[in-house]
């Protein structure tokens, strides 16, 4: 089971290396959205700084959502998902590996460029560890929850809007906790509570969503 997990991640890595645009799109989107805020709000550093936790988290959330629409689409269209459903390995393990690969190559890249963009918004350097921590704990939850929606809508021709409607409400706790942690850190308040809540959400998502993703994929393949 561990072997198939690793070979699926290797397969996804190969596919992404051969079509790097898929990797770059969410990152460029993230960077552009963050760069647009100062243009829209104005260049006052104090205002941007106080807004930056929310802005960064909103942009990250939308970037993850954007990248999730196509998560299972190509596997659905070329028949790979049928083979997954009939595999002797549990579909939930394959789904978890797929989302893990997606997060490793797009979520993690997002976390890596976030500090640069945060500094652009005037977030002080002392807040960067909390920014990184909250994104590291929060983005896997965003990917996993989004994958549930992506699995359910993969069979639909235009699933994008429906995916957003299904999934955005579920993102609310992560958004509140993630930007809350950063806001608290900015004001010099303790953040352990926020981060621990995020960590528990991450654990919950890793343990429960693979089953929901697998069920969604079965329904989509069975249509």
């Amino acid at each position: 089971m561990g072997r198939v997990f690793v070979s699926l991640i290797v397969r996804e890595a190969r596919l992404l290396c051969r079509r790097p645009a898929e990797l770059a799109n969410p990152l460029v989107f993230f960077a552009i959205v963050i760069a647009l805020f100062p243009l829209a709000i104005g260049p006052q550093t104090s205002l941007l700084q106080s807004l930056s936790p929310g802005l960064i988290w909103m942009a990250a959330l939308l970037a993850v959502l954007l990248s999730l629409d196509d998560l299972f689409r190509s596997d659905f269209e070329d028949g790979s998902l049928e083979q997954w459903v009939l595999s002797c390995h549990p579909l939930s393990v394959l789904a978890l590996a797929k989302v893990a690969a997606h997060w490793l190559f797009s979520g993690l890249a997002l976390v890596v460029i976030a500090p640069v963009l945060a500094l652009m918004l005037g977030l002080p350097g002392r807040c960067l560890p909390v920014l990184l921590g909250s994104l590291l704990l929060g983005t896997p939850v965003l990917s996993l929850l989004g994958a549930v929606g992506a699995a359910l809508t993969v069979g639909l021709k235009r699933g994008g809007v429906l995916l957003a409607l299904l999934i955005l409400p579920l993102y609310i706790p992560v958004l509140i906790l993630g930007s809350g942690a950063l806001q608290a850190n900015l004001q010099g308040l303790p953040v352990a509570g926020h981060l621990l809540w995020l960590a528990s959400l991450a654990v919950l998502a890793v343990t429960l969503t693979p089953f929901a993703i697998a069920a969604g994929l079965r329904i989509s393949v069975g249509e």
């Binding site: 070979s7 397969r11 596919l15 070329d78 049928e82 009939l86």
Partner: peptide, 24 residues
């Protein structure tokens, strides 16, 4: 199936090795 689960971006060897890894 009609769509046989072959990835256009992978080579025949990679495709086949992965399909086998799923089953045997």
């Amino acid at each position: 199936g009609h769509a046989a689960g072959i990835k256009a971006l992978l080579t025949p060897e990679e495709n086949l090795a992965w399909l086998c890894a799923l089953h045997r």
